[in-house]
Amino acid sequence: MTLPGGDGPILTCEGIGLAFGRVQALLNMSFDVRRGEILSIIGPNGAGKTSVVNTITGFYRPQQGTIRFNGQDITGLPPHRVAKAGVARTFQNTELFAGLTVLDNLLAARHIFLRSNILSCAIYLGLAEREDIRARQVVEDIIDLLEMEAIRKQEVGTLPYGQRKRVELGRALALEPDLILLDEPTVGMNLEEKEDMVRFILDVSEEKGTTIVLVEHDMDIVMDISDRIVVFDFGVKIAEGPPAEIKKDERVIRAYLGEG
């Protein structure tokens, strides 16, 4: 595992500007994500948190600025190229492949690692089968880590909400990313489910050394597990620092945390 801040930033956003018509979603947004850290992005509704996630992963094209990941310029790349570069994400409103089983959802995310062409897929025996078995081994490790053994052959459309969120995290992990962007992974969960999810996030961070960017509204979780926090308000970064500093920051209290 690489230590936080060891090799310089894994992701650099520099002067990102994103506008939809005359609505400025992000304005001159700059921040770094350090290797191996858990960075939380917080801010009131409409502050541009999800826009940042969508911009980094290629779903939105920024009008200004550059995004560098692992030294590579990924600004404006289509989402599937960004995923290939090593950035995985989850979605705010769980977006799974509802008709596939948990296993196949994770296997679908192994897509970029599989090479078998259309002919060997049609024959299946041999190359395609061997590749699928190897992919299955990787995926089973993730299922093990996230404690999803019992539901692995269930279609995700039939799963309860909390488990779907877990499957989505698993699917992101199946990409073996260097960086995961989690867009509100605990939204709508009860306390127990939240505790499980936080434990999994910490497990992933510690066991795999994956860098994690967390967009989250639950301040207890954010203050507990973040190495650093970035605060947005109206598309502008208003503060950045470790949890203890953020808690005391005047502007953050005024914009988001509130008095008391």
């Binding site: 779903f59 289509p78 679908a108």
Partner: peptide, 24 residues
């Protein structure tokens, strides 16, 4: 049942997520 079929179903069920998972 191979990678192709999974990619197709992924596109059918959720093309946004499919793109996010590296499927062109």
């Amino acid at each position: 049942r191979s990678r192709l079929g999974r990619a197709f179903i992924a596109i059918r069920d959720n093309d946004r997520a499919a793109e996010g998972m590296g499927i062109d």
